[in-house]
């Protein structure tokens, strides 16, 4: 409509290009595997949280069960690879599509629930998923699945010597999800989602099909979350239910967005850049004795953000105009 608005949009793209350029160069000087590992996880959680943000941030349907889609992605590509020899690239796509389908099936009853009831339902469903995989013998039950790693190969997406290929894939995924969010933000669906979040009744009075909007957001969100899950499986090359489907993942997808700014374009990336290195550093610092400490840490983070900056850290820099006199 107005050019100031379009200018702001274009600036976002320029900033994104600059950030990606910096992130491409960032690991080149780093030989330390431990730090490379942190970089991979940080970028991966930026992508995951960005995916979560589509459903929970933009559409306002707070999910604390995204570990389900993450796990589905991880298991889909791994099962197809281990049992049928299908390369993970196809497995990834299959996992994404399958997770999106599951999200629609889950959404059918759950989107009739409002607010907290929806959130609780997502937690319960993810736990059911966890239990199912713990008892599914074909998928290795609790002992999980090992991805055979024969050497460095882009075809099977396995790398032994360096973590950089994983890093660049995760960075690419984060960039793609960011771009998808960027374009959706200024599209009909983006406006519909925010309308549903802000005021469901008002949205309805404008002809927004609330249920369909939620379903669309859930499908897109689950799709990219599952791609992240497939990636993670390849990255760690061994998965079991406890390492890909536990509640911790649901939290780690939600928290970066909450810290940076929920329902914003940059919130998940900013939040991940702060939270993930902190988490990893405290984890290694506390060692085995710190089990459970990360949960205390997350709790503290949530409280500080809720009290000091309910709209996330980004609200420190994005100016909102004062109310008229």
């Amino acid at each position: 409509m107005a050019s100031a608005f379009e200018l702001r949009r274009r600036n976002q793209l320029i900033i994104a290009a600059a950030v990606v350029a910096v992130m491409i160069a960032l690991p080149l000087g780093i030989k330390d595997v431990y730090i490379q590992n942190i970089l991979v996880l940080t970028v991966m959680y930026a992508a995951l949280s960005q995916s979560w943000n589509i459903l929970s941030g933009y559409c306002g349907q707070i999910s604390l069960g995204h570990a389900l889609y993450f796990g589905i992605g991880a298991y889909a590509s791994t099962l197809l690879f281990v049992k049928f020899g299908i390369i993970p690239w196809f497995g990834m796509a299959a996992g994404g599509i399958f997770a999106a389908a599951i999200a629609l099936i889950v959404g059918w009853p759950c989107f009739r629930l409002g607010g907290h009831y929806f959130t609780i339902a997502t937690i319960v469903l993810a736990e059911i998923g966890l239990i199912l995989f713990l008892n599914w013998s074909y998928a290795g039950e609790a002992s999980g699945l090992q991805i055979p790693v024969s050497g460095d190969s882009w075809t099977t997406f396995t790398f032994l010597r360096s973590k950089l290929p994983y890093y660049y894939f995760a960075l690419g995924l984060a960039a793609v999800v960011w771009l998808v969010t960027y374009f959706i933000e200024d599209s009909k669906w983006g406006y519909y989602w925010r309308a549903v979040r802000e005021n469901t009744l008002a949205a309805q009075s404008l002809g927004v099909q609330v249920f369909r909007s939620k379903m669309a957001a859930a499908a897109v969100s689950a799709f990219f979350t599952a791609i992240g899950g497939s990636f993670y499986a390849q990255f760690v090359s061994y998965i079991d239910p406890d390492s890909v489907m536990v509640f911790q993942f649901s939290l780690l997808m939600a928290l970066p967005a909450v810290i940076g700014g929920i329902g914003t374009l940059w919130g998940p990336a900013v939040g991940a850049a702060i939270l993930i290195p902190l988490t990893e550093l405290t984890r290694s610092y506390m060692g085995g004795g710190g089990k459970g400490f990360d949960l205390i840490f997350y709790g503290a983070v949530i409280m500080i953000i809720a009290l000091a900056r309910p709209e996330g850290l980004l609200s420190l820099v994005t100016r909102t105009r004062p109310a008229p006199p």
């Binding site: 406006y191 925010r194 009075s205």
Partner: peptide, 21 residues
């Protein structure tokens, strides 16, 4: 609607745009 029912945290532009889709 009664009580206006705007989208409070969206800009005026976005509120208007939501009518046009």
């Amino acid at each position: 609607p009664e009580g206006r029912r705007l989208f409070p945290r969206l800009a005026v532009r976005d509120n208007l745009r939501l009518g046009s889709y």
